[in-house]
Design a protein around this nucleic acid. Structure first.
Lengths: 197, 197
DNA sequence: CGCGACGTTGATTTGCCTCAACGATTGTGG
DNA sequence: CCACAATCGTTGAGGCAAATCAACGTCGCG
Protein backbone atom coordinates (compact mmCIF):
# COMPACT_ATOMS: atom_id res chain seq x y z
CA UNK A 1 0.00 0.00 0.00
CA UNK A 2 0.93 3.64 -0.19
CA UNK A 3 2.36 5.74 2.57
CA UNK A 4 0.68 8.89 3.72
CA UNK A 5 -0.19 11.25 2.01
CA UNK A 6 -0.80 9.14 -1.10
CA UNK A 7 -3.06 6.58 0.50
CA UNK A 8 -6.04 8.89 0.91
CA UNK A 9 -5.75 9.90 -2.75
CA UNK A 10 -5.68 6.33 -4.02
CA UNK A 11 -8.56 5.43 -1.74
CA UNK A 12 -10.55 8.39 -2.95
CA UNK A 13 -10.14 7.39 -6.59
CA UNK A 14 -10.71 3.73 -5.84
CA UNK A 15 -14.12 4.52 -4.45
CA UNK A 16 -15.24 5.22 -8.01
CA UNK A 17 -13.08 3.08 -10.32
CA UNK A 18 -10.98 -0.03 -10.05
CA UNK A 19 -7.23 0.54 -10.40
CA UNK A 20 -4.40 -1.92 -10.99
CA UNK A 21 -1.25 -1.64 -8.92
CA UNK A 22 0.59 -0.23 -11.95
CA UNK A 23 -2.09 2.39 -12.56
CA UNK A 24 -1.94 3.48 -8.94
CA UNK A 25 1.81 3.98 -9.25
CA UNK A 26 1.33 5.96 -12.44
CA UNK A 27 -1.24 8.25 -10.89
CA UNK A 28 0.59 8.89 -7.67
CA UNK A 29 3.73 9.85 -9.55
CA UNK A 30 1.98 12.84 -11.13
CA UNK A 31 1.08 14.46 -7.83
CA UNK A 32 3.28 16.74 -5.76
CA UNK A 33 2.90 17.00 -2.02
CA UNK A 34 2.56 20.45 -0.54
CA UNK A 35 1.88 21.83 2.91
CA UNK A 36 0.22 25.18 3.32
CA UNK A 37 -0.42 27.32 6.38
CA UNK A 38 -3.68 28.79 7.58
CA UNK A 39 -4.55 32.00 5.70
CA UNK A 40 -2.26 31.13 2.80
CA UNK A 41 -3.63 31.84 -0.68
CA UNK A 42 -3.32 28.74 -2.86
CA UNK A 43 -4.68 30.66 -5.81
CA UNK A 44 -5.18 34.37 -6.29
CA UNK A 45 -7.66 35.87 -8.77
CA UNK A 46 -5.79 37.15 -11.81
CA UNK A 47 -3.12 34.45 -11.72
CA UNK A 48 -3.47 31.33 -13.81
CA UNK A 49 -4.73 28.29 -11.95
CA UNK A 50 -1.87 25.87 -12.59
CA UNK A 51 -2.93 22.91 -10.47
CA UNK A 52 -5.80 20.81 -9.24
CA UNK A 53 -5.48 20.23 -5.49
CA UNK A 54 -6.60 17.16 -3.61
CA UNK A 55 -7.05 17.93 0.08
CA UNK A 56 -5.33 15.24 2.14
CA UNK A 57 -5.98 17.09 5.35
CA UNK A 58 -7.11 20.57 6.31
CA UNK A 59 -9.61 22.95 4.75
CA UNK A 60 -9.81 25.31 1.78
CA UNK A 61 -12.28 28.01 0.83
CA UNK A 62 -12.99 28.85 -2.82
CA UNK A 63 -14.53 32.26 -3.47
CA UNK A 64 -15.01 35.06 -5.97
CA UNK A 65 -14.98 38.75 -5.15
CA UNK A 66 -17.47 40.75 -7.21
CA UNK A 67 -17.14 44.28 -8.61
CA UNK A 68 -18.43 45.86 -5.41
CA UNK A 69 -15.80 44.03 -3.36
CA UNK A 70 -18.18 41.48 -1.87
CA UNK A 71 -16.76 37.98 -1.44
CA UNK A 72 -18.93 35.05 -2.52
CA UNK A 73 -17.93 31.59 -1.28
CA UNK A 74 -18.44 29.00 -4.02
CA UNK A 75 -17.58 26.00 -1.91
CA UNK A 76 -15.50 24.59 0.89
CA UNK A 77 -12.99 21.78 0.30
CA UNK A 78 -12.13 19.70 3.34
CA UNK A 79 -10.40 16.36 3.68
CA UNK A 80 -10.83 14.19 0.63
CA UNK A 81 -12.16 16.92 -1.66
CA UNK A 82 -10.76 18.55 -4.76
CA UNK A 83 -10.24 22.23 -5.48
CA UNK A 84 -9.36 24.26 -8.57
CA UNK A 85 -10.68 27.11 -10.69
CA UNK A 86 -11.34 24.78 -13.60
CA UNK A 87 -12.27 27.53 -16.02
CA UNK A 88 -8.75 28.88 -15.60
CA UNK A 89 -7.05 25.50 -15.23
CA UNK A 90 -8.55 24.18 -18.46
CA UNK A 91 -8.71 27.34 -20.52
CA UNK A 92 -5.43 28.91 -19.45
CA UNK A 93 -7.28 32.14 -18.72
CA UNK A 94 -6.71 34.28 -15.61
CA UNK A 95 -8.42 32.84 -12.56
CA UNK A 96 -11.48 34.61 -11.18
CA UNK A 97 -11.43 32.67 -7.92
CA UNK A 98 -9.39 32.92 -4.79
CA UNK A 99 -8.56 29.67 -3.03
CA UNK A 100 -7.40 30.10 0.55
CA UNK A 101 -6.39 27.65 3.24
CA UNK A 102 -8.56 28.22 6.30
CA UNK A 103 -6.52 25.70 8.29
CA UNK A 104 -3.00 24.35 8.02
CA UNK A 105 -3.44 21.85 5.21
CA UNK A 106 -1.77 19.08 3.27
CA UNK A 107 -2.39 18.94 -0.47
CA UNK A 108 -1.54 16.77 -3.42
CA UNK A 109 -1.34 18.84 -6.58
CA UNK A 110 -1.33 17.92 -10.24
CA UNK A 111 -0.63 20.34 -13.08
CA UNK A 112 -2.28 20.52 -16.49
CA UNK A 113 0.40 18.50 -18.26
CA UNK A 114 0.08 15.92 -15.50
CA UNK A 115 -3.65 15.52 -16.05
CA UNK A 116 -3.23 15.22 -19.81
CA UNK A 117 -0.48 12.64 -19.36
CA UNK A 118 -2.69 10.64 -17.02
CA UNK A 119 -5.68 10.81 -19.36
CA UNK A 120 -3.47 9.33 -22.09
CA UNK A 121 -1.67 6.74 -20.01
CA UNK A 122 -4.46 5.69 -17.65
CA UNK A 123 -7.91 5.77 -19.26
CA UNK A 124 -9.34 4.68 -15.94
CA UNK A 125 -8.20 7.99 -14.50
CA UNK A 126 -10.09 9.83 -17.21
CA UNK A 127 -13.13 7.76 -16.29
CA UNK A 128 -12.69 8.78 -12.67
CA UNK A 129 -12.47 12.39 -13.76
CA UNK A 130 -15.65 12.09 -15.82
CA UNK A 131 -17.50 10.59 -12.87
CA UNK A 132 -16.30 13.33 -10.53
CA UNK A 133 -17.45 16.08 -12.84
CA UNK A 134 -20.79 14.39 -13.41
CA UNK A 135 -21.34 14.27 -9.68
CA UNK A 136 -20.15 17.82 -9.17
CA UNK A 137 -22.45 18.96 -11.95
CA UNK A 138 -25.54 17.28 -10.52
CA UNK A 139 -24.67 18.59 -7.05
CA UNK A 140 -24.65 22.13 -8.43
CA UNK A 141 -28.02 21.65 -10.10
CA UNK A 142 -29.30 20.56 -6.69
CA UNK A 143 -27.82 23.66 -5.14
CA UNK A 144 -29.41 26.03 -7.65
CA UNK A 145 -32.75 24.37 -7.03
CA UNK A 146 -32.23 24.96 -3.32
CA UNK A 147 -31.40 28.60 -3.84
CA UNK A 148 -34.55 29.08 -5.89
CA UNK A 149 -36.99 27.09 -3.80
CA UNK A 150 -35.87 27.47 -0.17
CA UNK A 151 -35.66 30.36 2.28
CA UNK A 152 -32.35 31.28 3.89
CA UNK A 153 -33.44 29.51 7.06
CA UNK A 154 -34.25 26.30 5.20
CA UNK A 155 -30.97 26.43 3.29
CA UNK A 156 -29.05 26.83 6.54
CA UNK A 157 -30.86 23.89 8.11
CA UNK A 158 -30.15 21.75 5.06
CA UNK A 159 -26.51 22.83 5.16
CA UNK A 160 -26.16 21.78 8.79
CA UNK A 161 -27.69 18.39 8.07
CA UNK A 162 -25.63 17.77 4.96
CA UNK A 163 -22.31 18.95 6.44
CA UNK A 164 -22.60 18.52 10.21
CA UNK A 165 -19.02 19.43 11.01
CA UNK A 166 -18.52 22.33 8.63
CA UNK A 167 -20.21 24.84 10.91
CA UNK A 168 -17.40 24.33 13.40
CA UNK A 169 -14.59 24.52 10.88
CA UNK A 170 -15.54 27.66 8.97
CA UNK A 171 -16.33 31.22 10.00
CA UNK A 172 -20.01 32.14 10.18
CA UNK A 173 -19.55 34.86 7.62
CA UNK A 174 -18.14 32.41 5.11
CA UNK A 175 -20.99 29.99 5.65
CA UNK A 176 -23.39 32.91 5.24
CA UNK A 177 -21.68 33.82 1.98
CA UNK A 178 -21.87 30.22 0.77
CA UNK A 179 -25.60 30.21 1.49
CA UNK A 180 -26.06 33.53 -0.26
CA UNK A 181 -27.03 35.68 2.72
CA UNK A 182 -25.34 38.40 4.75
CA UNK A 183 -23.54 37.49 7.98
CA UNK A 184 -25.93 39.73 9.90
CA UNK A 185 -28.95 37.88 8.64
CA UNK A 186 -27.50 34.46 9.32
CA UNK A 187 -26.79 35.61 12.83
CA UNK A 188 -30.44 36.53 13.22
CA UNK A 189 -31.92 33.26 12.00
CA UNK A 190 -29.42 31.02 13.80
CA UNK A 191 -31.24 31.12 17.18
CA UNK A 192 -34.43 29.86 15.51
CA UNK A 193 -32.61 26.72 14.44
CA UNK A 194 -30.25 25.93 17.29
CA UNK A 195 -31.95 27.16 20.48
CA UNK A 196 -28.91 25.91 22.36
CA UNK A 197 -25.32 24.88 21.55
CA UNK B 1 -20.31 11.98 -44.19
CA UNK B 2 -23.44 11.23 -42.23
CA UNK B 3 -26.99 11.96 -43.27
CA UNK B 4 -29.27 14.05 -41.17
CA UNK B 5 -29.90 13.71 -38.21
CA UNK B 6 -26.55 12.16 -37.35
CA UNK B 7 -24.37 14.82 -38.90
CA UNK B 8 -25.10 17.45 -36.25
CA UNK B 9 -24.26 14.94 -33.51
CA UNK B 10 -20.93 13.96 -35.05
CA UNK B 11 -20.09 17.60 -35.65
CA UNK B 12 -20.97 18.47 -32.08
CA UNK B 13 -18.65 15.82 -30.68
CA UNK B 14 -15.92 16.61 -33.19
CA UNK B 15 -15.76 20.16 -31.93
CA UNK B 16 -14.15 18.77 -28.77
CA UNK B 17 -12.30 15.57 -29.74
CA UNK B 18 -10.91 14.01 -32.90
CA UNK B 19 -12.78 10.92 -34.09
CA UNK B 20 -11.80 8.27 -36.64
CA UNK B 21 -14.33 7.16 -39.20
CA UNK B 22 -14.77 3.89 -37.34
CA UNK B 23 -15.36 5.64 -34.02
CA UNK B 24 -17.98 7.85 -35.61
CA UNK B 25 -19.81 4.78 -36.89
CA UNK B 26 -19.64 3.20 -33.48
CA UNK B 27 -21.04 6.23 -31.73
CA UNK B 28 -23.83 6.89 -34.17
CA UNK B 29 -25.01 3.31 -33.91
CA UNK B 30 -25.84 3.75 -30.20
CA UNK B 31 -28.28 6.61 -30.78
CA UNK B 32 -31.94 6.28 -31.64
CA UNK B 33 -33.75 8.97 -33.58
CA UNK B 34 -36.96 10.29 -32.14
CA UNK B 35 -39.38 13.05 -33.06
CA UNK B 36 -41.48 14.70 -30.39
CA UNK B 37 -44.30 17.21 -30.58
CA UNK B 38 -44.64 20.53 -28.83
CA UNK B 39 -45.84 20.09 -25.20
CA UNK B 40 -44.76 16.47 -25.11
CA UNK B 41 -43.09 15.35 -21.90
CA UNK B 42 -39.78 13.63 -22.68
CA UNK B 43 -39.31 12.88 -19.01
CA UNK B 44 -41.73 13.06 -16.12
CA UNK B 45 -40.68 13.45 -12.50
CA UNK B 46 -41.01 10.13 -10.71
CA UNK B 47 -40.10 8.04 -13.74
CA UNK B 48 -36.56 6.88 -14.27
CA UNK B 49 -34.55 8.93 -16.73
CA UNK B 50 -33.59 6.24 -19.24
CA UNK B 51 -31.85 8.30 -21.92
CA UNK B 52 -29.62 11.23 -22.62
CA UNK B 53 -31.06 13.33 -25.44
CA UNK B 54 -29.11 15.30 -28.01
CA UNK B 55 -31.25 18.01 -29.54
CA UNK B 56 -30.87 17.91 -33.33
CA UNK B 57 -33.57 20.53 -33.81
CA UNK B 58 -36.21 22.11 -31.64
CA UNK B 59 -36.26 23.13 -28.01
CA UNK B 60 -36.59 21.47 -24.60
CA UNK B 61 -37.19 22.87 -21.13
CA UNK B 62 -35.80 21.13 -18.04
CA UNK B 63 -37.47 22.01 -14.75
CA UNK B 64 -38.26 20.88 -11.22
CA UNK B 65 -41.51 21.51 -9.40
CA UNK B 66 -41.03 22.17 -5.69
CA UNK B 67 -43.23 21.11 -2.77
CA UNK B 68 -45.43 24.18 -3.10
CA UNK B 69 -46.09 23.41 -6.75
CA UNK B 70 -43.82 26.13 -8.15
CA UNK B 71 -41.91 25.19 -11.30
CA UNK B 72 -38.22 26.09 -11.47
CA UNK B 73 -36.57 26.01 -14.88
CA UNK B 74 -33.05 24.58 -14.63
CA UNK B 75 -32.10 25.16 -18.22
CA UNK B 76 -33.20 25.29 -21.81
CA UNK B 77 -31.82 22.89 -24.41
CA UNK B 78 -32.02 24.08 -27.99
CA UNK B 79 -30.33 22.83 -31.15
CA UNK B 80 -27.02 21.15 -30.46
CA UNK B 81 -27.49 20.82 -26.69
CA UNK B 82 -27.88 17.83 -24.44
CA UNK B 83 -30.60 17.08 -21.92
CA UNK B 84 -31.08 14.51 -19.16
CA UNK B 85 -31.71 14.29 -15.43
CA UNK B 86 -28.26 12.88 -14.81
CA UNK B 87 -28.85 12.13 -11.15
CA UNK B 88 -31.58 9.73 -12.22
CA UNK B 89 -29.86 8.55 -15.41
CA UNK B 90 -26.68 7.62 -13.56
CA UNK B 91 -28.08 6.52 -10.23
CA UNK B 92 -31.18 4.73 -11.43
CA UNK B 93 -33.24 6.73 -8.95
CA UNK B 94 -36.60 8.33 -9.77
CA UNK B 95 -36.21 11.55 -11.73
CA UNK B 96 -36.94 14.84 -10.00
CA UNK B 97 -37.01 16.80 -13.25
CA UNK B 98 -39.54 17.23 -15.98
CA UNK B 99 -38.22 17.60 -19.50
CA UNK B 100 -40.72 18.99 -21.95
CA UNK B 101 -40.53 19.85 -25.63
CA UNK B 102 -41.52 23.47 -26.10
CA UNK B 103 -41.36 23.09 -29.88
CA UNK B 104 -41.68 20.15 -32.25
CA UNK B 105 -38.23 18.62 -31.90
CA UNK B 106 -35.87 16.00 -33.28
CA UNK B 107 -33.74 14.11 -30.78
CA UNK B 108 -31.03 11.50 -30.75
CA UNK B 109 -31.23 9.40 -27.61
CA UNK B 110 -28.80 7.05 -25.97
CA UNK B 111 -29.61 4.79 -23.03
CA UNK B 112 -27.45 3.90 -20.05
CA UNK B 113 -26.17 0.64 -21.53
CA UNK B 114 -25.33 2.56 -24.68
CA UNK B 115 -23.20 5.08 -22.83
CA UNK B 116 -21.37 2.36 -20.93
CA UNK B 117 -20.75 0.43 -24.13
CA UNK B 118 -19.38 3.55 -25.78
CA UNK B 119 -17.14 4.38 -22.84
CA UNK B 120 -15.64 0.90 -23.16
CA UNK B 121 -15.37 0.73 -26.91
CA UNK B 122 -14.50 4.35 -27.70
CA UNK B 123 -12.34 6.00 -25.03
CA UNK B 124 -12.47 9.16 -27.07
CA UNK B 125 -16.19 9.33 -26.40
CA UNK B 126 -15.54 9.12 -22.68
CA UNK B 127 -13.08 11.99 -23.10
CA UNK B 128 -15.77 13.97 -24.87
CA UNK B 129 -18.13 13.24 -22.02
CA UNK B 130 -15.57 14.38 -19.46
CA UNK B 131 -15.03 17.62 -21.33
CA UNK B 132 -18.76 18.28 -21.60
CA UNK B 133 -19.30 17.79 -17.89
CA UNK B 134 -16.32 19.96 -17.03
CA UNK B 135 -17.77 22.74 -19.12
CA UNK B 136 -21.26 22.25 -17.74
CA UNK B 137 -19.85 22.32 -14.22
CA UNK B 138 -17.92 25.56 -14.70
CA UNK B 139 -20.95 27.12 -16.40
CA UNK B 140 -23.05 26.33 -13.32
CA UNK B 141 -20.44 27.87 -11.01
CA UNK B 142 -20.69 31.00 -13.17
CA UNK B 143 -24.45 30.92 -12.84
CA UNK B 144 -24.40 30.63 -9.06
CA UNK B 145 -22.02 33.55 -8.90
CA UNK B 146 -24.46 35.53 -11.04
CA UNK B 147 -27.38 34.66 -8.78
CA UNK B 148 -25.42 35.81 -5.73
CA UNK B 149 -23.85 38.97 -7.12
CA UNK B 150 -26.35 40.40 -9.60
CA UNK B 151 -29.84 41.88 -9.34
CA UNK B 152 -32.70 40.37 -11.32
CA UNK B 153 -32.37 43.20 -13.84
CA UNK B 154 -28.67 42.53 -14.38
CA UNK B 155 -29.25 38.81 -14.70
CA UNK B 156 -31.90 39.41 -17.33
CA UNK B 157 -29.61 41.72 -19.29
CA UNK B 158 -26.81 39.16 -19.13
CA UNK B 159 -29.23 36.45 -20.25
CA UNK B 160 -30.29 38.47 -23.30
CA UNK B 161 -26.68 39.08 -24.27
CA UNK B 162 -25.60 35.49 -23.77
CA UNK B 163 -28.60 33.91 -25.49
CA UNK B 164 -29.93 36.52 -27.92
CA UNK B 165 -32.52 34.28 -29.56
CA UNK B 166 -33.85 32.47 -26.49
CA UNK B 167 -36.15 35.31 -25.50
CA UNK B 168 -38.13 34.71 -28.68
CA UNK B 169 -38.25 30.94 -28.38
CA UNK B 170 -39.38 30.56 -24.77
CA UNK B 171 -42.27 31.96 -22.75
CA UNK B 172 -41.51 34.93 -20.51
CA UNK B 173 -42.61 33.03 -17.47
CA UNK B 174 -40.13 30.26 -18.16
CA UNK B 175 -37.31 32.73 -18.66
CA UNK B 176 -38.37 34.40 -15.42
CA UNK B 177 -38.25 31.05 -13.67
CA UNK B 178 -34.81 30.31 -15.12
CA UNK B 179 -33.60 33.64 -13.79
CA UNK B 180 -35.14 32.98 -10.39
CA UNK B 181 -37.81 35.70 -10.38
CA UNK B 182 -41.58 35.75 -10.73
CA UNK B 183 -43.15 36.41 -14.14
CA UNK B 184 -44.78 39.53 -12.74
CA UNK B 185 -41.51 40.99 -11.65
CA UNK B 186 -39.76 40.22 -14.93
CA UNK B 187 -42.60 41.95 -16.69
CA UNK B 188 -41.97 45.04 -14.57
CA UNK B 189 -38.25 45.28 -15.18
CA UNK B 190 -38.41 44.47 -18.89
CA UNK B 191 -39.31 48.03 -19.97
CA UNK B 192 -36.17 49.35 -18.23
CA UNK B 193 -34.03 47.20 -20.47
CA UNK B 194 -35.75 47.20 -23.83
CA UNK B 195 -37.45 50.60 -24.20
CA UNK B 196 -38.66 49.40 -27.60
CA UNK B 197 -39.10 46.07 -29.40
C1' DC C 1 -2.15 45.74 26.30
C1' DG C 2 -4.44 47.54 22.10
C1' DC C 3 -5.78 46.78 17.54
C1' DG C 4 -8.65 44.65 14.12
C1' DA C 5 -11.74 41.04 12.78
C1' DC C 6 -15.79 38.65 14.16
C1' DG C 7 -20.50 37.83 15.79
C1' DT C 8 -24.56 40.05 17.54
C1' DT C 9 -28.48 43.18 17.81
C1' DG C 10 -31.48 46.97 16.40
C1' DA C 11 -33.57 50.50 13.12
C1' DT C 12 -34.50 51.33 8.59
C1' DT C 13 -34.76 50.42 3.70
C1' DT C 14 -35.52 47.82 -0.51
C1' DG C 15 -35.79 44.29 -4.05
C1' DC C 16 -38.78 41.19 -5.01
C1' DC C 17 -43.07 38.47 -3.95
C1' DT C 18 -48.07 37.92 -3.40
C1' DC C 19 -52.54 38.65 -4.66
C1' DA C 20 -55.82 40.47 -7.65
C1' DA C 21 -57.75 42.46 -11.77
C1' DC C 22 -57.49 43.28 -16.70
C1' DG C 23 -56.76 42.87 -21.96
C1' DA C 24 -54.62 40.03 -25.45
C1' DT C 25 -53.50 35.81 -27.34
C1' DT C 26 -53.93 31.00 -27.98
C1' DG C 27 -56.23 26.89 -28.41
C1' DT C 28 -60.29 24.02 -28.55
C1' DG C 29 -64.73 21.91 -29.13
C1' DG C 30 -69.11 22.47 -31.29
C1' DC D 1 -65.19 29.14 -38.49
C1' DC D 2 -66.67 31.01 -34.52
C1' DA D 3 -67.50 31.25 -29.29
C1' DC D 4 -65.71 30.11 -25.25
C1' DA D 5 -62.18 28.81 -22.01
C1' DA D 6 -57.60 28.83 -20.68
C1' DT D 7 -53.22 30.72 -20.52
C1' DC D 8 -50.17 34.54 -20.91
C1' DG D 9 -48.28 39.06 -20.18
C1' DT D 10 -49.18 43.39 -17.88
C1' DT D 11 -50.15 46.60 -14.15
C1' DG D 12 -51.11 48.11 -9.39
C1' DA D 13 -51.46 47.81 -4.17
C1' DG D 14 -49.61 45.96 -0.32
C1' DG D 15 -46.41 42.92 2.29
C1' DC D 16 -42.35 40.39 3.57
C1' DA D 17 -37.63 38.41 3.50
C1' DA D 18 -33.41 39.87 3.47
C1' DA D 19 -30.04 43.85 2.78
C1' DT D 20 -27.97 47.93 4.57
C1' DC D 21 -26.08 50.78 8.01
C1' DA D 22 -24.55 51.46 12.49
C1' DA D 23 -23.29 50.51 17.24
C1' DC D 24 -21.38 47.40 20.60
C1' DG D 25 -19.08 43.42 23.18
C1' DT D 26 -15.80 39.71 22.53
C1' DC D 27 -12.00 37.31 21.10
C1' DG D 28 -7.51 36.14 18.87
C1' DC D 29 -3.25 37.93 17.89
C1' DG D 30 0.90 40.92 17.24
Amino acid sequence: MFPHPYLPLVQNISRHVLLTEAEQQHIVRQFRYRRVRKRQLILQAGDRCLVESFVVAGALKCSITDLRGVEHVLYFAVDDWWAADHASFLGGTPATWDIEATEDSELLQIDYAGTQALYEAVPTYERFSRIMFQRAYTALQERIFGIYSLTAEQRYTAFLQKYPNMSQRFAQKHIASFLGVTPEYLSKIRPHIEPFS
